[in-house]
Amino acid sequence: MNAIETTGLSKRYKNKTAVDNLTFAVEKGTLFALLGVNGAGKTTTIKMLSCLTPPSAGDALVAGCSILGDPQGVKAKINVSPQETAVAPNLTVKENLVFIAGIYGSAPAEAKKKAAEMMAAFGLAKETENKAKTLSGGTQRRLSIAMALISRPEILFLDEPTLGLDVLARRELWKAIEKLKGEVTVILTTHYMEEAEALSDTIGIMSEGRLKAVGTAAQLMKLTRTSSFEDAFIALAGEAEAEV
């Protein structure tokens, strides 16, 4: 069963096509990584799938709801962790979590219960009463992802979740993301090849707004006859369209 199905999804601005006729599917409960150089169309694709910007053409079914016909239905079933850490700086860790649970419809008591669960799951229990602005970059990022999961989304969009983190914080976050597999469908964008290789079930490589290839890391290496995933990415990012 597919969590996401896009059909001819496109986004055009005045003089530029940011995303061009994107058609792909993501299986439920898997982690799908979207890779590409800057300006490849990854973030625009995520913005369209999470109803942050309307497509110029095409449509997508996200958790069974059309992004054109039922954006509120989509929004109720997804959550997003944006590229930059997106937390309310003057709210405590607990208040940030309760706030997000509240805007997804949880009653105050239920929101507090969910917040406690998230703090335990993401190692934030010691930071409960600390304001978000006082946390380290890595802890803020963990909080940001916990905020994205507190609504128990069917689909989670992670836009460059480890950007700017040190290697320890990055590995810690990888563990948290890996635990989601099977329960939540995760769409991840990243510039780190090793991150995509380590975490993803399927990888889509975008270039100039088009999806150049989709497959596992091993399949993409085989397709390009390369010995490392980074070489496979470099070969595909500038190559003609390919299917595995």
Partner: peptide, 8 residues
């Protein structure tokens, strides 16, 4: 951005 993607 996070809030715009929510049901608000």
């Amino acid at each position: 951005t996070r809030l715009f993607a929510s049901p608000l």
